[in-house]
C-alpha cells in the first residue's frame, strides 16, 4: 500500500466538480483507492463518497492506494488536489 497526505488549496474545496475530477482520475487506475479526511474514509472511485467528505479549503486528505499502480495513482491524485483543480 502507498499513501500520501495533501491539503485542499482551493477556496471552494472539494465540491461537485473537483470530486468528479478526482473520481475520473481514480477510475483510470487498477488499484483500490481510498481517501480519508481524518474522520471518514471513502472509496476514491465513488463520487458520492468523495463528495460526502465535504473537504473544505485547508482540509488534509490522506490518499491511499493498493495494487499494481498504487504509487502512480497516489502521486497523480495528490498533484490533482494540490493544483486546486484549476480553480482560484
Amino acid at each position: 500500500m502507498y499513501q500520501k497526505a495533501v491539503a485542499v488549496p482551493n477556496r471552494l474545496g472539494v465540491h461537485a466538480r473537483p470530486a468528479a475530477l478526482i473520481v475520473k482520475k481514480a477510475a483510470v487506475f487498477g488499484s483500490e483507492i481510498t481517501i480519508s479526511n481524518g474522520i471518514e474514509e471513502v472509496n476514491g472511485k465513488s463520487i458520492m463518497g468523495v463528495m460526502t467528505l465535504a473537504a473544505g479549503q485547508g482540509t488534509e486528505l490522506l490518499i491511499s492506494a493498493s495494487g499494481e499502480d498504487e504509487e502512480r495513482a497516489v502521486e497523480e491524485l495528490c498533484s490533482l488536489v494540490s493544483s486546486g483543480f484549476g480553480e482560484d
Binding site: A16, A20, K24, K45, S46, M48, G49
Partner: peptide, 16 residues
C-alpha cells in the same frame, strides 16, 4: 454539461 457529467458519474458510482 458539467452537471450532467456529474449525474452520469452518480449513476456509475461503484459503492452505490
Amino acid at each position: 454539461r458539467q452537471i450532467l457529467d456529474v449525474h452520469m458519474m452518480l449513476l456509475d458510482d461503484p459503492v452505490m
